[in-house]
Amino acid sequence: MTTSGNAPATTIVEARDLTKRFRASGGGWGRRAQVHAVEQVDITLAPGEVVGLVGESGSGKSTLGRLMLRLIEPTEGRIRFEGEDITDWSQGRLRPLRRRMQIIFQDPYSSLDPRKTVAGLIGEAFAIHKLYSRRERRERTVALLERVGLSADHLERFPHEFSGGQRQRLGIARALAVEPRFIVADEPVSALDVSVQAQIINLMAGLQRDLNLALLFISHDLSVVEYISDRVMVMYLGRIMEEAPARDLYTKPRHPYTEALLSAAPVPEPDVERKRIILEGDLPSPMDPPSGCVFRTRCPYALPACAEAPPPLREVAPGHRTACIRDDVL
């Protein structure tokens, strides 16, 4: 494996032209149908950086997160982690590396093994990597539990004895056990009650800051992403539409999809009268995405030229990149 020339301190994980096409079942008539889940995505995270990944269902955001951890094999593209190209590494070779990259799941009910106690769930991380002595493992487990707002009293309990929010804390503790540098959080608060969401967001924001974690925060909830992220990427039908520092993106969106998404999100402020952009229709099928710009079929500003080729991401302001040819409207 070649080591890249750039200093590893500036990026922790970097993907180029990442593409994933799933074989669809029942394609029919000769040609195998393919689901274009992720198409030619470039993404980079610096150590300690929080990148928000926003998109609707079917946009490929969860697939992208799993691709970066190589939990799913990419169809095309390269992934570098801490300067090393890990695209072709075998799963066996990746195993020690998994200590440094982790994932937090959406559903706190299906993401914890119902047959293991809390001690077993978190201890598994140590056992897999043969870390620490028996006693140390226990001490570290308790320390982790306390770190996420639980306590040693919970060690011998099973997941079903916890509420949704507590389970999500357990999921976070498990991910932190191996002391990763990079975490993919896939909709970590979407399944939680409103009053519990804020607890988990506070917890994650605090841990991220204290441990200087690189965090890829995947969510469909724009306000949560805005709150926690340094930089935000907007995804639609497998492609990145826009990418910018969080504040720029929310205050000065440069892509029609971002603009529509922001205006569609209900805001809990009844006094604020807002102009709402209602997009026509639904997300096109990822099995047969539109030619050219994938958003053009719902875009209020689409031109004939939009159908020609997928517009590349262009820098329109420092760190602000958009995949739209219509500079004249936004």
């Binding site: 020690p96 590396l97 998994r98 559903d107 993401s111 914890l112 093994d113 598994e124």
Partner: peptide, 17 residues
């Protein structure tokens, strides 16, 4: 395909485990 199995994989567990 359940997430806790994926979580084990993400932790680096071997297929045997």
């Amino acid at each position: 395909s359940v997430e806790y199995v994926e979580a084990s994989r993400a932790l680096g567990a071997s297929p045997f485990r």
